[in-house]
Structure formats: C-alpha cells, structure tokens
Design a protein around this nucleic acid. Structure first.
Length: 470
RNA sequence: GUCCCCAUCGUCUAGUCUGGCCUAGGACGCCGCCCUUUCAAGGCGGCAACGCGGGUUCAAAUCCCGCUGGGGACGCCA
C-alpha cells in the first residue's frame, strides 16, 4: 500500500454516463497501479436535482463495469455539519462574508453585463459591508485573492497560470444552508486525504478557485490531473443526442463490460500500439504520463469491434450464461424442452464470430431455441421451390438411417443425392439451410444439423417439403 | 465578451519531453483480392494525416512566435 488516495465523485442527477465511467476508470487504474485507495463519494449537495434513484443507477453502473471502490460511498448530505463548521471558520477568520444579493438580482446583473460585453463576474458589492448576522436570506462568499497568480501544475496538461483578477468571490454556503460544489469538494478532498484529484477537463477552471480555499483552511493542496473530454461524432461534448451515453444502455445492447472498459481506456490513453488489454495489463501499464491532452471522439464502431474480439475469446460457458437474458426476450426458457444439442454452450462457438453483441448473437441462436422455426418468407420463396423438394426428401430419408450426424457420415449421403439428381452443392445447400434455419444465412450446414439433432432436422425438412406441396 | 485548454489519416493513437533512426507506424472503418455451400471469421493488399504562416537549426511532426480552427468554463449546478 502506498499513500495514494483518489476518488470518483459523481453527482446523482442522472444515470452514470460514458464520460463518468472513463473518469472513474482512470482514477481506479491509478489507485490500483500504485496500490492506493479508491474512494467513492456522492456529491449530492444540489437538493433539487439529486435523487436516490440516480445514486442506485450510478452504483449499479459502477458494479457492472467492475470498478470496485475501497471506501464509501460517502454522501455529502451526510456531512453537512462539517461544511457548515468549516464555512463558519472561514467567516470567523475574515476569509468569507455574507452576501445579501438575491439570485434574481445576480442573474439580472449578469445578463446586463453580458449584453454590454462586460465581465460577468460578481462585483463584490457585499464584500466590505461587514454583515455579521444577516436579517434576510444570505449566502456566504469566499474572499478570493485578487492579486497575483494561481499556478496549477497539472499532471497531464503541465503548468497552467491563472491571473487572480479573474477569480470570483464564490458562494460557499447557499442561503438554504447547503454548501456549494466548489466548497464541499475542497473540504472532502482535504479531509478524505485525497492525494490526486483526477477529473474531467471541464474542471480546469474550477481548480484556481479551489486552490485558494485549500490554502485558506490550511490544507495541503492535492495534485491535479485533468482528463480530456469525450466528444460526440460532431466534436461537441458527448451527450444524449449522440445516442446511448448511459453505461447500462451498453449492457442492454449486449456489450461486455471488459470490452467497454478496454475501449474507454484507449480513449485518451495508450501504451504503444497495443489495443487489447486485460484488466491486469491495464493496471500494470497505466500511467498519467501517457494520457493524451486533447479531446477524443467516441467511436461506436471501434467499441463494437472490441466487443466482437472479447466475444470470440470468452469462455463459451460464461458467454452462454450471459446470453440467456437476451434469449429470454425471445421467449426462450432455459429449462424448457427446446434446446440445442449439447446445450446453449455448444452453440456459442458457431455464432460468436458472426455477432458483435449479445443482441446480435441472440438472433443467430434463435433457430436453435425455437420450434417450429420462424421462416423467412422471402427466403422460402426463393429457395424452397418444388424442384428441390424431391432431393430434400430423399436426403431426409437417407439421413434417418444414419447413426450420427457427423460430417463423415453425412457428406457421403449428400454427395450421393447430388449425383443421383444431377445437382451441384450450390443448388442444394441454400434450400437445405433455409429448411433447417428459416434463413439464408447460418453457421455451416453440418454444424447446424448437429446442433439441431436428427429428430429436429428431419422434422424441419419434412415441414419444408410439405409447404412445397409434397 | 472574458479566461483556460487543445491541434498527426474520417476516428482512436505511436512518434513530440530528450530535433536526425519518419519515405510518419499501429488500430477501427472503408475498398479490393484470397478462402468459402450462406453469413461471418480469417489471410493478403490498398486508400488515407503532421491545420496555416513565420522563425531557430546543418537538420523540425518534434523547439519558439503568430494566425486559424476546435473544445471547455464563466450558476445560491456539479
């Protein structure tokens, strides 16, 4: 164990999105790489927008991705006394002051300033009023330094210099006695002993506002590392209009968490030319030094490719298990009578290189888990013609005398039938495929027959032949 | 408007710190060929980038400046 302590601090105002998972992942990898501690903290100081459902969704999303936390989840609303005490301390020390401007007034002034093209920062009109016990609703503001510079030595972006004149006197305690983000985050990061604050790029501008607070309270300032944003295909910040952004939506679409994590780790981080990493490799190789400083566009196609790779490598038994929920949506009963020969597990090797997600895989498995088979009418029209019926029928008759359905046993029969009827394999294979699977595409004919078993093969051929009028 | 960040194929990126090994590498996608009873997978090949302009230097993707472009932040949201 080292003394590295990092945290993931989402606000529970919605589901856990892709960007959040990436931030959590990089924190988690940093912690695991250094043998440190990963803290989960829920920043729910916005009373109006925070919900318990969102907290549940975030925890569920995190669990699905496998990013386990060592401490927490802590809720900021359980720590309100702490923030009030610390804000009082700042007031007592003359480092904070009461502001009686109303939100409406502030909003109006901002708009006016914007219209005139002037600075929209707070004008500090309550700063020297010396209010000690406000008679009306009031917010507590932190006296930000107005001289000199605040320098942030970002672990990813390098040195960033801010003129303190751009700093606002931030509200640290709202008139409803709740702390604001920029204050509670400082208190918690300090008190929880966070050594490295690894967060999204969108917080860069918050950093020079938070640093003076650490200093005013006599806390050690943590190291900062700002991760590049994830953008949508139009290069705007990734949002709902770019499609699925909730992690759990990816679970529903049939992605493996390992694939998503692998995709996300390569978004802004790299290790030479390597594309596929086990979790262990990620932990070993991860370093903030190799984190990109520019934003990255989310590319669903590459995620899909990675998912396909993981599908191809996975243990068939595990894959089969994960596939079940997707099949159940099609009416599959894991304990029902209609099963592939050898069980679901036996189908996996034949369908997984044809699918990129479990959703697609389920579709490939459909012909083996439903009875009767669902016939694609267009395919039937084209291939199940009366001309081929006698050949199919003859084939079925010969097949019924066979002990097994191995390629060695079946092939001679096919060859014989083709020769007798003067047909080429190309003319026979597709009709047989359609008869057996109801589709024009499937795993190899031999595999299909073996997975179906002789009884169902004969049944399906018979059904196909009879629909041709024989 | 003000402040901050960023800039290599369509996309993710290697190379940039420590200039020469870069005729700029890999991956996704796309295109072609091979394999093939279908669909895939697989194999082989191809297209495709250092934003622009100035410096510095024997030498610049790499260092410096400017421009342009993109992103982010400016809330009693986080």
């Amino acid at each position: 164990m080292t003394d590295v302590r990092v945290r993931f601090a989402p606000s529970p105002t919605g589901y856990l999105h892709i960007g959040g998972v990436r931030t959590a992942l990089f924190n988690w990898l940093f912690a695991r790489h250094h043998g440190g501690t990963f803290v989960l903290r829920i920043e729910d100081t916005d009373r109006d927008r925070s919900t318990d459902e969102a907290i549940d969704a975030i925890l569920e999303g995190l669990r699905w991705t496998g990013l386990d936390w060592d401490e927490g989840p802590f809720r900021q609303t359980d720590r309100l006394d702490l923030y009030r005490e610390k804000s009082q301390q700042l007031f007592d020390q003359g480092k904070a002051y009461w502001c009686v401007c109303t939100p409406e007034e502030l909003e109006l002034r901002r708009k006016e300033a914007q219209a005139k093209g002037e600075s929209i920062k707070y004008d500090g009109r309550c700063r020297d009023l010396g209010i000690t016990k406000p008679a009306q609703p009031a917010a507590l503001r932190f006296k930000s330094p107005q001289e000199g510079q605040t320098v942030v030595d970002d672990l990813i972006k390098g040195k960033i210099v801010f003129e303190n004149t751009v700093l606002d006197d931030l509200i640290i305690l709202r008139s409803n006695n709740y702390p604001t983000y920029n204050f509670s985050v400082v208190i918690d990061d300090a008190l929880m002993g966070i050594t490295h604050v690894i967060r999204g790029d969108d917080h860069v501008n918050n950093t020079p506002r938070q640093v003076p607070m650490f200093e005013a309270l006599g806390y050690q300032v943590p190291h900062f590392a700002h991760l590049p944003m994830i953008l949508g295909s139009d290069k705007a910040r990734l949002s709902k209009r770019h499609g699925a952004t909730s992690v759990l939506a990816y679970q529903e679409m049939g992605y493996l968490p390992e694939a998503l994590v692998n995709y996300l780790v390569r978004l802004g981080w790299s290790h030479g030319d390597q594309e596929i990493f086990t979790i262990q490799e990620m932990i070993e190789k991860f370093s903030l030094k190799n984190v990109q400083s520019s934003a990255a566009v989310f590319n669903p196609e590459k995620l899909q490719w990675l998912n396909a790779e993981y599908l191809k490598q996975g243990d068939p038994r595990v894959m089969a298990e994960l596939l079940v929920p997707f099949l159940e949506k099609h009416g599959y009963d894991p304990k029902g009578a209609v099963q592939p020969q050898g069980g679901l597990e036996a189908v996996i090797p034949h369908v997984r290189e044809r699918a990129t997600t479990f959703l697609e895989m389920a579709d490939w498995v459909l012909p083996f888990i439903s009875e009767p088979v669902t016939m694609d009418e267009e395919a039937a029209m084209k291939f199940l013609t009366p001309a081929i019926a006698p050949t199919l029928k003859k084939f079925a008759e010969r097949l019924s005398g066979l002990a097994g359905l191995s390629k060695e046993e079946v092939d001679p029969i096919i060859q014989a039938v083709l020769e007798e009827d003067g047909l080429k394999m190309g003319k026979f294979a597709q009709p047989l495929r359609v008869a057996l699977t109801g589709r024009t595409f499937s795993p190899g004919i031999h595999e299909v027959m073996q997975l179906l078993g002789k009884e169902r093969v004969l049944l399906r051929i018979a059904q196909a032949v009879s629909r041709m009028g024989f």
